[in-house]
Amino acid sequence: MLDYFLQQLIFALAIGAIYGLIALGYTMVYGVMRLINFAHGEFFMLGPYVYTFIFSGLIGLGGLAPVLDSVIAIVASFVIVGLLGVAIERFAYRPLRAYGRLAPMLSALGMSIVLQSAVRVTVGPQPVHFPAIVPSTPIDALGGMVTTVQFGILVAAVLLMVGLTLFVNGTRLGIWIRAASESWTTSSLLGIRVNRAVSLVFFIGPGLGAMAGIMYASYYGIMQPTMGSVIGLKAFTAAILGGIGSIPGAMLGGFLLGAIETFGTAFLPILSFGYIGTEYRDVFAFAVLILVLLFKPAGLLGETVSEETTVAKKDY
């Protein structure tokens, strides 16, 4: 039982890390713009596609050492997807700033349709095999069997999260982002270029999403144009669970959602004597979310909304 538990724990951490990385994109964008970026799941989907494109391009050109090819392709997909995020913000969201919060949200929805169908049209709707970046060898971790891929995902995701935390808390640009999330008007009065902070957030968020996409694709060995929809929805749930707008909250929410799902799937049928099967996994995740929000209306680590905040006064 214990080794089964440990094995499930590693599964939970690996999938939770992926949720967490995507949730970071949702939460950072929400922090500065109060926008639910429905297109975010598509950046997650674009990650593995851009990676494969660059990687096979490098191989086609003769290629360097295989490791170097992978690294270049990974960095390139972060940058390319990030720049795409910046461009989308510039053209599809920025013109709508003065028009409340519904218009940009729906514009994001439109962008999501555009990105997804653009990929479908160019590479076809069918799932494509995604070659593993690291060879998948099983390793014995305290009695539980995990693969190098799961382990690699966990390490890479934690490194990215630590890096982001250091960046946001320790650098000048990070201070811009935090200031812009705190108060748009005040920070612009104090000479912070809020638009640059927004662009920065729209670079980092989609970039992290692309990284999560590459991890997810190497976990399951497959990618397809629709993969961003459901995962994006779940990651958004994770962001809300942790308290939207809060960066540690998104990470916590991601890991929690991963744990709820994995352990729910693994133990619910046992605990309920087979009455509630694994097919209720998603119901379980959403039900936990509703329960948490009933007792902590701003999520686990979210700030309690003060009466002065415009968001609180005017919902939509």
Binding site: I36, L233, L293, A298, V311
Partner: peptide, 16 residues
């Protein structure tokens, strides 16, 4: 619940 929290709970309800 307010604002986006309400939005996500209604979304969850629909999915459930």
């Amino acid at each position: 619940l307010r604002g986006d929290y309400l939005a996500i709970v209604t979304l969850s309800f629909g999915e459930i």
